[in-house]
Write a protein that binds this DNA or RNA. Structure first.
Lengths: 112, 112
DNA sequence: TTCATTGTCAACCATTTGGTTAAGTATAAT
DNA sequence: ATTATACTTAACCAAATGGTTGACAATGAA
C-alpha cells in the first residue's frame, strides 16, 4: 500500500509524457467527448488513439462511459494531484534553498 | 520555439516517470552527490545509474560538475516549473468545474 | 435485412527503455 | 610504475512503446 503510490506516480507521469495524450487531456478539459471526435484532429489511426486512451484510462486520468456504441470520455484530474504534490515538494525545497541563500548572503553582508 | 516547450515537457515528465530517477532526485534534494554515492542504495549496476543520470541531465533536472575523476551532481528544479504549470492549469480547471457545480447546486437549492 | 458507424482487439513492426557485462579512460594513491 | 577508484561507453538483451493494418463486434439507420 506504500509502493502503490509510486506506481500511481509512474503511471500518471508516463501518461503525461506524450504530446498526443496531453492534447487529448486538453481537449477533454473543454468538454466530454466521444472517441472518434477525440481522434479527428490527429494524423493517426483510430486504433492508435484507442491505445492512448487506454493509457490515460489506466492512469485514472480518463473515465469512460458507454452508451450503445458510443464511448464518452471525460477528464478526471484527481490523479494529477499526486504529481502536483510531488512537484510541489521540490518547489518548497527550492524556496527553502533560496531562503537559505538569502540568509547566508545577509549574514555575509552584516559580518563583512 | 513553440514546439520546443512540448519536447521539454515530454523530457521532464518522462524523466519523472521512473521510481529510480525520482529517488535520485529525492537524494539530490538533500545535498549534491557523487555518482557512486548516488548509486549505492540501488540494487543496480553503476552503468544503469549512469544512464538514469543522463536521462535526468537530458531533462535539465540534474547538473553535473566534474573535478578530476569525481562527478558531482546537483538538482536543478527549474525544469519542473513547466510541469507544475501544466498541472496547475488543470488544477484551476478542476476548481472552476467545482465552482460551477456549487453554483448550480445553489441555484437548484434556491429555485426548489 | 442490409448497410454504416463506433469502437475494440490481435498481430505485426520499428524504436526506445531499462537493465546487463565487459572493456576502456582518466585520475589518485602507493 | 603499479594498482585502485570513479566513471563512461559499447554491445547486447528482453520487454515496453507507439504506430500500422485487418478482422471483428455491436449498435443504429435505411
Amino acid at each position: 500500500m506504500v509502493n502503490n503510490q509510486g506506481a500511481q506516480l509512474d503511471a500518471v507521469f508516463h501518461a503525461l509524457a506524450d504530446p498526443t495524450r496531453r492534447a487529448i487531456i486538453a481537449r477533454l478539459a473543454q468538454a466530454p467527448c466521444g472517441i472518434s471526435e477525440l481522434a479527428a484532429p490527429f494524423d493517426m489511426t483510430l486504433a492508435a488513439i484507442s491505445k492512448h486512451i487506454k493509457v490515460l484510462e489506466g492512469a485514472g486520468l480518463l473515465l469512460r462511459s458507454i452508451e450503445g456504441r458510443n464511448h464518452t470520455c471525460r477528464l478526471d484530474t484527481g490523479p494529477m494531484v499526486g504529481g502536483m504534490e510531488w512537484l510541489r515538494h521540490y518547489e518548497t525545497f527550492w524556496n527553502q534553498r533560496l531562503d537559505a541563500l538569502v540568509t547566508a548572503l545577509n549574514a555575509e553582508d552584516t559580518t563583512a
